[in-house]
Structures are given as structure tokens and as C-alpha cells.
């Protein structure tokens, strides 16, 4: 296990900058998730840590060593790829023991380590099978087995669950998390799925356009997003945004005035974006009017698409309510959970 430190790490392809100087410290044993939309540079960053991409500038340290110029094999890392990258011509056991074999491990030692990893991941009955004879979930487990068998200092996961169906993804998410809790190995995990990021991470790094938007614990990002991008990216259904102006009466959005927390008055007269998560609306006779556009009962909750003034917004209500499209309801935003962002740049104001 080791700390991983990125200092002003840059990546360029010719004149095009992909990663614009990223600083990131990952503590020993921490589970860090790099999350962001497609093309934000998260996989490139992971591959730079792995040594599969060259580093155009800055420094990557694993433990005390600067690894910028080291081959992947010399970095003491293990990586799980999106498509698992299992060697098709080798059995599960050979796949798992392959790296040890090439590092001069004895046959007995390799067999012992493979058995240990297979027992942890429930792969013991599958050791003689070939990857083509396995299901998606089993292949995923073998890929993880191949990573843990060597006891590396850092695990790198590159969107490992994106090829699985939704149900299996939830199962494997839990397995990866419990594996980390058991082994306590420093882990960097890349995903574009913010639910995966929220449920698995000790620390989330939100990336956008090759820059870090925010680093923090999952709930910290959820409760106090640093900017409008993070606010919109983290959370499902995503946060509602209304453009308007902060006034003494409240937040004046097109066709509606929404209540504001008292502290927001310091920004009176400023153009801003009013952000509120769907679950932070409550049905209240004294609330603001909202026309119902669509009702989606989910069982545990009801999602309602509604019109607040001229802006479409989503509300999530836990209580069983009888609502129908076209009707008008009254909703009250929870003032403790109202987020205000600058209209220019999207930085958090409150």
C-alpha cells in the first residue's frame, strides 16, 4: 500500500492540452473515484498513473518514488480494464498467476496466491475454465483476482462495471467495495457514473475538461458543491437550476419568485442560478405554485416534472400523493438546501 501524489500533472497531444495541471493527494488505503463526463480526461489520468500514457509535465509519485519514467511493471500497480483484458488463451488460474510467473514466483507460491485470491472472490470452481466460458460478472471477478493476486501497492480500475447489466453492476459495486475494505489497498477508480462514485468512494474527484472541479467526500460534494457543474453532475435525478436575479423579495426567476435563505441577501441585485435538489421540495399549502407536467410513481417515491414559472423542474416526494398532469400544486423549497451559483462562471455564492 502507498500514497499516490499527483503534482501539476499535464498531458498534451501535440498542441492540444488534455490534462491541465492536476494536483491530487491520495492517502494510503484510500478509495478515490475519478468521475466526470466522457472526454474529461479521467481515464487518461488513470493511465498516466499506470504508466500506459506518458506524462507531458508534472510529477506522479507512488509512495516515495517519482514514477514518471518507470514502466508499468516497475510501478507496483495492478489495473482492471473496462473490457477486463483477460488473456483468452489462458485459463482463469493461468490468467491470475501470469504476472507472478513473470516476476519469478515459484509454482507453489503462485498456486497459493491464486487459491487465496480465488477463495476471496469465489472463483475456486472456475479456475480451469477459459474466459470465453465465463459470464460477464465472472470475468469481472477474474480481472479483480488478477489484480489482487500480486498484492500491489495501488489498484487502478478503469470503468470496470460499465459492461455489466444494471443489476450485476450493483452486486459488483458492493464486491469491489468490500474487497477494498478487506485489503485496504490504495485504489483509484474511474467511472462516469456518479452513483458508483457516491456509493464507493472515500473521496471523489470531479473532472471536467481536463481540470479538477472539486475534490471531497461524497456527501460533501452532494451537500455543498463548489460550482454549478459539480452540482449538476452529482445526484440523480440531477439538481434543478433556475436562472434569475437575487432580490429583496426573493429569487426572481422567469414567471416566479422563489424564497431565499436570509444569508443570500448580501448578493441582492446579482444575477445568479438557483439550485435545488428534487428531494428538497416539500408539498406545502403556503408554497409557490407549480404546474404538473409529468408524474412518475417509482414505488418508494414519486417523481414529478413540474413548471416553476417558466422553468421545468423535477420534484421527488416520498409520501404517496395523488397528482395528475395539468393540476397545480404548491411546493416549498427547503431553504437550508438552496444553492446559489454565480450566473457567470457558476461558482458557489452561499
Amino acid at each position: 500500500m502507498a500514497e499516490v501524489t499527483l503534482s501539476n500533472v499535464r498531458k498534451s497531444y501535440g498542441a492540444v492540452d488534455i490534462i491541465h495541471g492536476i494536483d491530487l493527494g491520495i492517502s494510503d488505503g484510500e478509495f478515490v473515484v475519478l468521475v466526470g463526463p466522457s472526454g474529461c480526461g479521467k481515464s487518461t489520468l488513470l493511465r498516466m498513473v499506470a504508466g500506459l500514457e506518458t506524462i507531458s509535465g508534472g510529477e506522479v509519485r507512488i509512495g516515495p518514488r517519482v514514477v514518471n519514467d518507470l514502466d508499468p511493471k516497475d510501478r507496483d500497480i495492478a489495473m482492471v480494464f473496462q473490457n477486463y483484458a483477460l488473456y483468452p488463451h489462458m485459463t482463469v488460474a493461468t490468467n491470475m498467476g501470469f504476472s507472478l510467473e513473470h516476476r519469478g514466483g515459484s509454482k507453489a507460491e503462485i498456486a497459493e496466491r491464486v487459491k487465496w485470491a480465488a477463495d476471496i472472490l469465489g472463483l475456486a470452481p472456475l479456475l480451469d475454465r477459459y474466459p470465453r466460458q465465463l459470464s460477464g460478472g465472472q470475468r469481472q471477478r477474474v480481472a479483480m483476482g488478477r489484480a489482487i493476486v500480486r498484492n500491489p501497492q495501488v489498484f487502478l480500475f478503469d470503468e470496470p462495471l460499465s459492461n455489466l447489466d444494471a443489476k450485476l453492476r450493483v452486486v459488483m459495486r458492493g464486491e469491489i467495495k468490500s474487497l477494498h475494505q478487506r485489503l485496504k489497498t490504495t485504489t483509484i477508480y474511474v467511472t462516469h457514473d456518479q452513483v458508483e462514485a457516491m456509493t464507493m468512494a472515500d473521496k471523489i474527484v470531479v473532472l471536467n475538461g481536463g481540470r479538477v472541479e472539486q475534490i471531497g467526500a461524497p456527501l460533501e460534494l452532494y451537500d455543498r458543491p463548489a460550482n454549478q457543474f459539480v452540482a449538476g453532475f452529482i445526484g440523480s435525478p440531477s439538481m434543478n437550476f433556475l436562472n434569475g436575479t437575487i432580490t429583496a423579495e426573493g429569487f426572481a426567476a422567469p414567471g416566479i419568485v422563489l424564497p431565499l435563505p436570509a444569508a443570500a441577501q448580501v448578493h441582492t441585485g446579482r444575477k445568479a442560478v438557483y439550485g435545488i435538489r428534487p428531494e428538497h421540495f416539500a408539498l406545502d399549502e403556503n408554497g409557490v405554485p407549480a404546474e404538473i407536467i409529468l408524474v412518475e410513481p417509482m414505488g418508494s417515491e414519486t417523481q414529478v416534472t413540474m413548471k416553476l414559472g417558466e422553468t421545468l423542474a423535477t420534484g421527488v416526494f416520498r409520501e404517496r400523493v395523488s397528482l395528475s398532469p395539468g393540476a397545480t400544486i404548491r411546493v416549498r423549497p427547503d431553504l437550508d438546501n438552496v444553492h446559489l451559483f454565480a450566473a457567470d462562471g457558476g461558482q458557489r455564492l452561499n
Partner: peptide
């Protein structure tokens, strides 16, 4: 041939 196979092999020490 998928590039990931080679990359996995590089990580595995080849």
C-alpha cells in the same frame, strides 16, 4: 487485437 490485452501484459510485467 484489443490494445488492452497488451496493456494488461505490460502491467503484468512483460
Amino acid at each position: 487485437l484489443p490494445a488492452e490485452l497488451e496493456e494488461a501484459a505490460r502491467v503484468d510485467g512483460l
